[in-house]
Each structure stands twice: as C-alpha cells, then as structure tokens.
Design a binder for these strands. Structure first.
Length: 192
DNA sequence: CTGTAGATCGTCT
DNA sequence: GACGATCTACAGA
C-alpha cells in the first residue's frame, strides 16, 4: 500500500523521519523494480536548521524543490560524486526534508548488486545515502518528481515500527552547522 | 581494526 | 575560487 500524498504533508518532519523507519522504499527505473526497508533517516528542519540547504531562508535553483508541498523527491549532487535522495515534507513554502541514509534490500537484490558491483548478502543492511541512491538508480533527473507516482514511492510494509528498536542521534557530516549539528535528528533502527 | 587521501563538479560567494 | 548532508581504496598497526 503506497503512502498517500497527505502522509507527506505532516507538519513535524522529525516525527516523520522516525515514522519512515521500517517502511519500504521502491524505485522502478528502466523497468527494473528495486526496493528495501528503510533503516536510517535524517530530518532537515526548515529555514531555522543550519544544517539544511534552506537555512536562513536560502532559496535557489538547486533547493527550490524543498519549498514544494510534501511528497516529492529532492535529489542533489554531493562532493561532486554522489547523488543524495531526500523526501520533501510539510506544506508548500516550508522547506522540510528527510534524507534516506540506509536500507535493507528486499526486492531486486540482484539488480542492486550489479549496480553496486558487489555482492549483497540476504538481509544485509546498506548504510550511506550515496550508496542508497546508487543502488536504487536515483539520479538528478528524478529531482522534483512525485513520490505517489510509479517511479519512486514508499509503501507502508509489514513492519510495525512500534516494535522496533529505534535510536535517535546526531546527524552525520554536518559539522559546519554549529550547535545544530548536535540535534538528535538522525534515526536508526534494527527491524525485529 | 583505524586513519586518511583522492575523486570530482555544481553551487554559491 | 572554495567547499561540500560522501565513498572507496589503501596503508599501517
């Protein structure tokens, strides 16, 4: 069951980042269906969050899609090498987003292994936002597309995340954000 | 196991 | 012109 558009309009991005754990992210790119259970996320909270591209109201061609209504993809190039995939949330003109940092492949594992160039063991968790987008073949061309369409979407899945062990911790690679780097906006889980 | 250098380019100042 | 919401390979202990 696909998450509906209204799901992404929720006003608390930190709450949503936590809620996404245990759900399944799918992509269908060039006819290849791949997907996995989300195990790690980070919330980026609007214009007041120094770690966010939208900090201090910054609004440019790159981050424009963060200002769209929730339920679309935000994809950007990081370090000139990796594409990072975010879920845009909240209402129009409120630039909240959730970075997907890790998942456990459950669909199309062989396709993902080919894209990665490495073997993926059954049940093995993949950590790292750059790897996630590479395995799912998410590219800049997907920036701004709807998450309720047939290319990238998220399903509720079977996992009840109230029964998972969920941890909150500080976000990765955002030392430039000063005190905001210490906010507990990173969520990890061990499905069980 | 830990540490670190290099890759590589769009974006913002 | 500087710098990333990173990953990998490789060196050393």
């Amino acid at each position: 069951m696909k998450l509906s558009r209204s799901y992404y309009l929720h006003g608390d991005v930190v709450c949503l980042a936590r809620d996404l754990l245990g759900k399944t992210l799918y992509t269908r790119i060039d006819g290849n269906l791949t997907g996995g259970i989300i195990t790690e996320t980070e919330a980026y909270r609007g214009i007041g969050d120094r770690a966010s591209h939208a900090w201090n109201g910054s609004r440019t061609a790159r981050n424009e899609v963060m200002y769209a209504a929730g339920g679309v993809a935000y994809v950007f190039l990081c370090y000139g090498v990796h594409y990072l995939f975010n879920v845009v949330t909240n209402n129009r003109n409120i630039p909240d987003a959730i970075l997907i940092r890790g998942l456990i492949p459950t669909t199309g594992e062989k396709i993902m292994a080919d894209r990665w160039g490495k073997e993926i063991k059954p049940g093995e968790a993949i950590y790292g936002p750059g790897r996630v987008s590479r395995l799912l073949s998410i590219l800049p061309g997907h920036n701004g597309i709807s998450l309720t369409g047939d290319t990238i979407w998220i399903e509720q899945g079977r996992t009840d995340n109230r029964k998972m062990s969920i941890k909150a911790s500080s976000r990765i690679g955002v030392d430039y954000a000063g005190e905001d780097a210490n906010l507990p906006y990173r969520f990890t889980c061990i499905p069980g």
